[in-house]
């Protein structure tokens, strides 16, 4: 286990380097599913490379719906941390997901939009896609 690192410090470092992958390196679950992050200006795009360990439907094959959800939840957490610049990691109150199609065994991407940032709770809209034509 890594020793406790100040979250604020991590975010500060990530911002100055414009490299947010260090944040993910400190979260075992992010490494477990293999997620990555890239920044384009102020925008963060999260990537979940195709990984046979994430398969949940061997027939198609398709990514486990729970992995897609976990990937999206983690993306929202990082997006909020970057925006808030706080010392604590946001806790999820609730999470609702609509699955529009199967997540095939290939790279997936996530973008988050913070629709409201209050003092205690925030709302985040998360989109996950694989091919860029339609979500």
């Amino acid at each position: 286990m890594t020793t406790a690192v100040s979250v604020k410090q991590l975010i500060k470092q990530a911002k100055s380097d414009n490299d947010f992958s260090g944040l993910l390196q400190h979260v075992p679950y992010a490494k477990f599913i293999g997620m990555q992050v890239e920044s384009f200006g102020d925008e963060l795009v999260f990537k979940l490379p195709a990984n046979p360990n994430n398969i949940g439907n061997p027939v198609l094959p398709a990514i486990h719906g729970g992995v897609i959800a976990g990937f999206m939840e983690m993306s929202a957490i990082v997006q909020l941390m970057v925006l808030m610049q706080t010392d604590s990691v946001p806790k999820i109150v609730d999470f609702a997901i609509d699955y529009l199609r199967a997540g095939y065994h290939k790279d997936s991407f996530v973008e988050c939009k913070i629709t409201r940032q209050g003092r205690r709770v925030a709302n985040v809209n998360i989109n996950c896609w694989q091919t860029s034509d339609i979500y």
Partner: peptide, 18 residues
């Protein structure tokens, strides 16, 4: 491996969802 909050060792919400 499933920890989402390294300071406390609490598992990630994504694991619960899965």
């Amino acid at each position: 491996d499933l920890v989402g909050y390294p300071d406390t060792g609490v598992v990630h919400g994504g694991v619960i969802t899965t």
